[in-house]
């Protein structure tokens, strides 16, 4: 079993007090693996990622990074500790140039900044060409890569992506997902939320299924490929997990 980077236990969280979207959700994310979260609309997938990233208050439960508690820590401090988060939309600063976006993300890199920037520009040649352009002028796929590049600029242990392929052409979507796999193969922990379930299951290691803010099921990704359970949960045919949650 690979080394656990992130562990969330019994997370209850929501946008307003007393109205939790997530109820006692738990998950583990390991280094070198792509961990996938799937589930129907409104399942709480994005909410879970935002709660881990520190953007939403967690009312119950604990989150640990490398076995150290990080519950309730500010988002910028989490970034410094090695958690990167690529939101689904509005994930770049349109008013800044591409280079300024990257420089901003590299602020905490210190002396390594220059070498990291060079590495990123080499990795994303399309961005390197357009460094001086406003990020708002990029195409959808290029924006997604800029957002990933900004996440990588912080040299994260864990990178979380919220539906990175949404709204992209099939080709660009595949490219982004393959890239996510590559990030895990380099040793990072990758936590991926995807609607593109089949494609994502093929490259993921482990998969969590959420519905109505609760854990429904988790299993190695390859076991779920071709399994009908997933479809049943999506269609609401299968009975949901009991009130106590799956923790």
């Amino acid at each position: 079993m690979a080394e656990t980077v992130l562990e969330a236990r019994g997370i209850t969280a929501g946008y307003v007090p007393d109205l939790p979207i997530l109820r006692s959700v738990s998950l583990k994310v390991a280094a070198g693996q792509v961990t996938l979260i799937v589930g129907p609309n409104g399942a709480g997938k994005s909410t879970l990622i935002k709660a881990i990233a520190g953007l939403l208050p967690v009312s119950e439960g604990r989150i640990t990074l490398d076995s150290r508690e990080i519950t309730g820590i500010r988002p910028d401090q989490l970034t410094a500790r090695g958690i990167a988060y690529v939101p689904q939309t509005d994930n770049i600063f349109r008013g800044l140039t591409i280079r300024q976006n990257l420089d901003l993300a590299l602020r905490g890199a210190g002396a390594e900044g220059t070498s990291r920037l060079e590495a990123l520009l080499a990795q994303f040649p399309a961005l390197a060409e357009k460094q001086r352009d406003r990020a708002g002028t990029l195409s959808g796929g290029q924006r997604q890569f800029l957002a990933v590049a900004m996440a990588l600029a912080t040299a994260p242990r864990l990178i979380m992506m919220d539906e990175p392929s949404a709204g992209l052409s099939p080709k660009a979507a595949e490219e982004v997902l393959i890239h996510a796999r590559g990030l895990a193969d380099e040793g990072r922990a990758v936590l991926l939320v995807e609607q593109n379930v089949k494609q994502a299951l093929r490259l993921a290691d482990h998969c969590y299924v959420l519905a109505e803010g609760r854990n429904q099921l988790d299993a190695p990704a390859r076991d779920l490929l071709g399994d009908t359970v997933l479809g049943e949960i999506y269609l609401g045919k299968r009975r949901l997990a009991p009130e106590s949650g799956a923790a």
Binding site: L55, P75, I92, F93, R107
Partner: peptide, 10 residues
């Protein structure tokens, strides 16, 4: 929010 997750102290 995006500024924060890019390490900016709000």
């Amino acid at each position: 929010a995006l500024a924060q997750i890019n390490g900016v102290n709000l």
